[in-house]
């Protein structure tokens, strides 16, 4: 039980320590606006949402638009290059680099906003 409380404490402390860190990543949040969930909750839990719901989406055809990776990208792709991964301060890259957590998503998934990708394809 003790362990649990410690891990909980740790969970709560990381964001706090972060807020105090002058080197904290400065990221391009794209369009931004109101997140589909509480932003602080999202910082801690976005990976669980993506991981659980990807199985529902692929295997059961349950596509939850709200929590889809595409929806994340729609808001958070940079307004400059329509991507969440193109630059060091792109939305996904800057935090993941700071925390040294490799992102595998974009080896298969597009990091581009769909409207921009479509435009680019039509231009080709």
């Amino acid at each position: 039980m003790k362990k649990l409380f410690f891990s909980l404490l740790l969970c709560l402390c990381i964001p706090m320590a972060w807020a105090a860190d002058a080197n904290a990543p400065k990221l391009d949040i794209g369009k931004g606006g109101q997140c589909v969930e509480d932003p602080q909750w999202m910082r801690k839990n976005h990976m669980h949402l993506l991981k659980h719901e990807r199985d529902d989406a692929v295997r059961k055809g349950l596509r939850d638009e709200k929590h889809s990776l595409k929806n994340c990208i729609e808001c958070h792709a940079s307004t400059k290059d329509d991507s969440v991964i193109a630059r060091d301060d792109s939305f996904c890259v800057s935090c993941h680099r700071y925390e040294a957590v490799k992102i595998d998503c974009f080896e298969c998934h597009s990091g581009k906003r769909k409207s921009a990708w479509l435009q680019q394809r039509e231009a080709k």
Partner: peptide, 23 residues
């Protein structure tokens, strides 16, 4: 202990609140 497990009940709530697709 794992945070991933702890999240599951929370996720259920969101899905019920927002689930429109039948799959």
């Amino acid at each position: 202990g794992a945070a991933a497990v702890a999240i599951a009940p929370g996720m259920m709530l969101f899905q019920v609140a927002h689930g429109d697709t039948q799959g």
